[in-house]
Design a protein around this nucleic acid. Structure first.
Length: 419
RNA sequence: GUGGGCGUAGCCGAGCGGUUAAGGCGCCAGGUUGUGGCCCUGGAGAUCGAGGGUUCGAAUCCCUCCGUCCACCCCA
């Protein structure tokens, strides 16, 4: 027997309403905020992500689905959304559009990881990118959109973590200071941290090992090392967020796994959430477009995981959205009536009435049972007697009321009442 | 990639060396002559995750693999 590959799963009809709810809310907000949808391929040249996320990032080092196609081209399944959007921005000359260009996407994303709660090898990201503007107002805008999304969905008790990780001018100075701080503690610190010290010192701040906490606690704060431009930008952002009454927690040790981030970084998680709890995250990436071969172009955005949203929706919301049920079930008895029932079904559908017809050789009793199980509001019964009279029995499944109408009247009636 | 828990019909789940492998939900069919939801009766559906081993005998013990869940790494 086949089963879905490890770390992938089917979204069955019963869960679809949650997805609909999340996606509808996201798309409605995008219209409201002036973001236009863009779809990019699920795979791209592998280099795009290596240049984007960074060769040193875990995502490209060990989590990318890389493969060669039949012509030997090196491709990769999208491990994140931003690089593709930037590629499209460049490829289609969007630098000539009014800036910033506001885009959103809804896309499957792939990472080869050990599956875990809230973590799959294929997941779906909804993301917004505003490209071509360095104003902190744009950061505030995408954060507001993300925050509104969760609010509209009724997700409560979320925390917005906020930090600035500086830019090309000030971050190197900070990293120097951070390394200097760690140098004397290298033996006391965990193995991973020794590795981070060499490879990705910013991540030192993110370590959860108890042994490393004292060193983190006394580490210099990046906020104190921001250059004037970065500081101004960060102050602006906070003013905007304050003006919008969006609460945030300054988190000087918040860092991100992708190399392209500059200045603003943020993350949204349920308060007191466990390991894989972050439901949305993002930040500014002012150097990425240039890195991909464009002119220097500031940009900012976020991505949020639909599966993680759905996970939280299911936990937090008691109300289960309704599943799809037909309005009318057409039952029949006798060979002649079969075809007539099939025809009646078609006529009802042409009037926009969602209708299901009984198929196979089942007794009327069985058909009624099925109509009930499917949740049909009405059953139209066509037997030999009705066939002869050109009528149909209309049964209201809620109150068991039933009456006989001419077919034409029945169609008219159902069209009216089910609208 | 590392560590731990778990894998019995579509779903939940008992059994833990010798049973025709419980039970519930769901599905299908009947409960008289053309009709649902409740109830009653019957039925279908399981190579007990896969492969190997121990044993007279294995769903039950051992090994390997696969899957799943949880934690780490990292991330949405």
């Amino acid at each position: 027997m086949f089963s879905a590959p490890r770390g992938t799963s089917d979204v069955l009809p019963a869960e679809q309403p949650y997805w609909r709810e999340a996606i509808d809310a996201a798309e409605r907000l995008c219209r409201l905020f002036g973001y236009a949808r863009i779809d990019t391929p699920v795979f791209e040249q592998a280099d795009l992500f290596e240049r984007g996320a960074g060769e040193g990032s875990d995502v490209v080092r060990k989590e990318m689905y890389v493969f060669e196609d039949r012509s030997g081209e090196r491709l990769a399944l999208k491990p994140e959304g931003t690089a593709s959007i930037c590629r499209a921005y460049l490829q289609h000359g969007m630098g000539n559009l009014p800036q910033p260009v506001r885009l959103y996407y809804l896309s499957p994303t792939f990472r080869y990881e050990r599956p875990q709660a809230g973590r799959r090898r294929q997941h779906t990201q909804f993301g917004c990118e505003a490209i071509g503007d360095a104003d902190a107002a744009v950061d505030a805008e995408v954060i507001e959109l993300l925050w509104r999304l969760y609010a509209d969905l009724g997700l409560g008790d979320l925390v917005l973590l906020l930090n600035s990780i500086g830019d090309r001018t000030c971050r190197p100075r900070y990293l120097e200071a951070l390394r200097a701080h760690y140098q004397p503690h290298l033996r006391a610190v965990c193995r991973d941290c020794r590795d981070r010290y060499a490879r990705n010192p910013l991540r030192l701040l993110d370590c959860k090992q108890a042994s490393c906490q004292p060193v983190i606690a006394t580490a210099p704060s990046i906020i104190d090392y921001l250059c004037d431009d970065c500081r101004r930008n960060f102050d602006d952002l906070r003013r905007y967020l304050d003006a919008l009454d969006i609460p945030y927690e300054l988190t000087p040790h918040l860092v991100r796994g992708l190399d392209y981030y500059t200045r603003t970084v943020f993350e949204v998680q349920p308060r007191g959430g466990g390991a894989q709890s972050t439901i949305g995250a993002g930040g500014r990436y002012d150097a990425l477009i240039e890195e991909l071969g464009g002119k220097p172009t500031p940009a900012t955005g976020f991505a949020t995981g639909i599966e993680r949203i759905v996970l939280n929706l299911r936990q937090q919301k008691a109300s289960v959205p309704t599943a799809t049920t037909p309005q009318v079930y057409v039952a029949h008895q006798g060979v002649e009536a079969r075809v007539e029932a099939f025809k009646l079904t078609s006529l009802l559908r042409r009037e926009g009435v969602s209708t299901v017809v009984a198929t196979g050789e089942r007794s009327l009793k069985s058909q009624m049972r099925q109509a009930n199980a499917l949740g049909a509001a009405w059953v139209a019964i066509l037997g030999e007697r009705e066939l002869a009279a050109g009528t149909v029995q209309l049964r209201n499944m809620a109150d068991a009321g039933q009456r006989e109408l001419l077919q034409r009247e029945a169609i008219q009636f159902l069209t009216g009442t089910t609208r």
